[in-house]
């Protein structure tokens, strides 16, 4: 896993995501989810391209039930883009890298 994508827990969500100065892409995942593991390298590549412009974090939904419940997540992988503490975009399921780039460009 890329060391630049930090794994955060329920307690850190507010400070790391909602109060972040940069926009944040939160990757909700779990070890038992094949597509979540499969897209991880793509997300790491995007992190390298957009370093300094958008912050990337991961939330393991198995270990952190509160945050997924708060955002009514019933499917993973789910990517939620936060800007100034608000949801700016949301993508559920495996999508093309080009779609993810488009979504990131859309919130920058």
């Amino acid at each position: 896993m890329s060391e630049n994508i930090i794994e955060i827990d329920d307690d850190a969500f507010e400070s790391e995501v909602l109060k972040s100065n940069l926009p944040v892409l939160v990757d909700f995942w779990a070890p038992w989810c094949g597509p979540c593991r499969a897209i991880a390298p793509t997300i790491e590549a995007l992190e390298k391209s957009y370093a300094g412009k958008i912050k990337f974090v991961k939330v393991n939904v198995d270990e952190n039930p509160l945050t997924p419940t708060k955002y009514a997540i019933q499917a993973i992988p789910t990517l939620i883009f936060f800007k100034d503490g608000q949801i700016a975009d949301q993508i559920t399921g495996m999508v093309a890298k080009a779609k993810l780039e488009e979504a990131i460009e859309g919130i920058l």
Partner: peptide, 17 residues
């Protein structure tokens, strides 16, 4: 309802149910 109950992937979403 995609991601809000509708799913095509049991291994991804089964544990939410």
């Amino acid at each position: 309802f995609m991601g809000k109950g509708v799913s095509f992937c049991a291994t991804c979403d089964g544990p939410f149910f």
